[in-house]
Nucleic acid binder design. Structure first.
Lengths: 172, 172
DNA sequence: TATCTGATGTCACTTGCTGACATAACCTGC
DNA sequence: GCAGGTTATGTCAGCAAGTGACATCAGATA
């Protein structure tokens, strides 16, 4: 992260990262599939959190309620380390390859949530759509939160995005 | 496309592509930014189509109506070459790097549509959300269409996805 | 015809990433 | 404690993607 933030992602070689870490270059690739993955190792935990939250929701809840709960909980967790999230976001925003990776991670989260919904008996299409909607609202709520110069409130921003998404989808 | 479809994306070298095309390897990179981009050169035209459709919609239309029209029109165009779309989809589905590229292209389309909506006076957040919703419905409609063993009807599938998205978002 | 421009070729080079094999650290059972 | 297995790390050679610099060639234009 330090190197990426300082000189930029492209300008940082794996050799430099390895040297800074006191390891051989080869060892880096044993810990991370590629140079980008360093910034996305946290995605697995986030996915667990989302899936667990979906799975544990009361059976009376509708798909969108379940998804809302999940992304809001994720927001609560992310919010804790705002400075880190911000720096990471800046690094990613400066590089298209990293944005690609970010997008596929989000898509993976969506499909994991969709799978968890299907487990609850939600039908295929609805599950996929609810998950996509949740991720879209999360994404836009996250961006608003990161831009906010004050402390901000990520879960609230996510909820508001979802409300506005609903309004927009209903033709308002 | 032939090479990618035959031996797979990873197993195809740029040297081979260049040879098949009767060109030097260097020349390949003057036509395409990288090895993946070959499969996404059509995205620019699609973006033009979407943006134009958004811009030309009657001023009375709501954001979601405008976006719906745009993605349906895009569906009509894509539908014409179903075999090509299918083969391309299969190649992409077999390779994570290509999926990443696909996702960033879709995200680019979404943000282009959002910009076109803002041009119409739609406020920032609503524009972004409407565009995201449109792309999500397009994506899922497209997948249904591509899986369909019959001739299928892409615009219809997209519309149905949007209807179902609305139902889901409203808590059904 | 002379010249200008754009597309292509050639070459050398960096860097990401992988496979194969060697070595060191660390358990685990006895 | 120690023999044997497992896991993390090092070393090295090599492939393929992508880039910069310079040369060349073909067609358009004055």
């Amino acid at each position: 992260m330090e190197l990426y933030a300082d000189r930029g992602f492209d300008q940082t070689t794996v050799a430099e990262i390895a040297e800074r870490a006191g390891l051989a270059e080869r060892t880096f690739f044993r810990h991370f599939a590629d140079k980008r993955e360093v910034l996305f190792s946290g995605a697995a935990e986030l996915q667990d959190l989302l899936v667990t939250t979906v799975a544990e929701a009361p059976s009376s809840a509708t798909p969108i309620e379940v998804i809302t709960r999940a992304v809001v909980v994720a927001g609560e967790v992310l919010q804790v380390r705002r400075d880190f999230a911000r720096q990471r976001h800046a690094v990613i925003a400066a590089n298209p390859e990293l944005q690609e990776r970010e997008l596929i991670k989000l898509a993976t989260l969506a499909s994991a949530m969709a799978a968890a919904l299907r487990q609850r008996g939600v039908k295929e299409q609805s599950a996929a759509l609810a998950a996509e909607v949740g991720v879209a609202a999360f994404k836009i709520g996250f961006e608003r939160w990161i831009k906010d110069s004050d402390a901000g409130d990520l879960p609230r921003d996510i909820r508001e995005s979802l409300d506005e998404l609903r309004a927009v989808a209903n033709g308002q």
